[in-house]
């Protein structure tokens, strides 16, 4: 009857359910698989505070070391703007807050549309910068594979499709919403299988780094 509606309902119905189940199962699997490997107790007497510094490093590592930004401005700037923009667009837009409220019972005030849309646009621009740095820069190029491009594309699609749907730039609004939700479904599905895992596992790696350095009383 209405393919756009049918697709939209499928995207936010069964497709989302399956995607979320894969997302939840995959992340749990990988985290458990990682943590249960365990680590030997360090027998060297601590000079600093391993646990405290491990926890602190989860946050402090978000701040770049001075002097490094100028060597890879695209990666640093693109990286920061992309992450901040992505999460601003994700977490400050009312429809997303409604989803989170439905899922977790948590809610917070939404931001002005101008902020959300600027964040989206900035994040997309940042993603383009990151893309070009992967293509042009020798270091990034040496490290980049299919997965990196796939993840970059899948992370930017929800932003672009969301922007198009919210502004009705083209297409049937229901169809664009369907495409937007499908892009999110795709992102959820690939999440556990790719480096997108870093958005969860970084807590562990930063903690371990901080704890190892912290035991020695060294910076992290």
């Amino acid at each position: 009857m209405n393919p756009a509606f049918t697709l939209f309902m499928w995207a936010r119905g069964p497709a989302f359910d399956v995607a979320l189940a894969i997302f939840a199962a995959g992340i749990t699997l990988r985290l458990v698989e990682m943590v249960v490997l365990g680590r030997k107790t360090d027998l060297a007497p601590a000079k600093g505070h391993p646990i405290r510094q491990g926890l602190a490093t989860i946050f402090t590592r978000s701040i770049p070391r001075p002097g490094l930004v100028r060597f890879a401005p695209g990666t640093y700037l693109g990286g920061y703007v992309f992450h901040l923009g992505f999460f601003a667009a994700f977490l400050l837009f009312a429809p997303h807050i409604a989803l989170i409220r439905d899922a977790l019972g948590l809610s917070w005030p939404a931001a002005n549309r101008a902020i959300v849309e600027s964040a989206t646009a900035l994040a997309v621009v940042a993603a383009i910068i990151l893309f070009f740095s992967r293509v042009m820069d020798p270091v990034r190029r040496a490290l980049t594979g299919f997965e990196d491009y796939l993840v970059l594309l899948l992370s930017v699609l929800p932003l672009v499709t969301g922007y198009v749907a919210a502004n009705k730039l083209f297409g049937n609004p229901e169809m664009m919403l369907a495409v937007h939700v499908l892009s999110v479904d795709a992102l959820l599905i690939v999440f556990p299988f790719t480096k997108l895992m870093h958005s969860v596992s970084f807590v562990f790696s930063r903690y371990y780094n901080g704890a190892i350095q912290g035991r020695k009383g060294a910076e992290s």
């Binding site: 309902m9 936010r12 119905g13 069964p14 989302f16 359910d17 399956v18 979320l20 189940a21 894969i22 997302f23 939840a24 199962a25 995959g26 992340i27 749990t28 699997l29 990988r30 985290l31 458990v32 698989e33 249960v36 429809p95 997303h96 409604a98 989803l99 439905d102 899922a103 919403l177």
Partner: peptide, 25 residues
């Protein structure tokens, strides 16, 4: 709300976490 999934996604996600934990372990 239009942005809220229509299925019983919470139960599925909880199930996913359970399955993931078991398989991961």
């Amino acid at each position: 709300p239009l942005s809220v999934p229509t299925g019983d996604y919470r139960a599925l996600a909880a199930g996913g976490v359970g399955v993931g934990a078991v398989v991961g372990a």
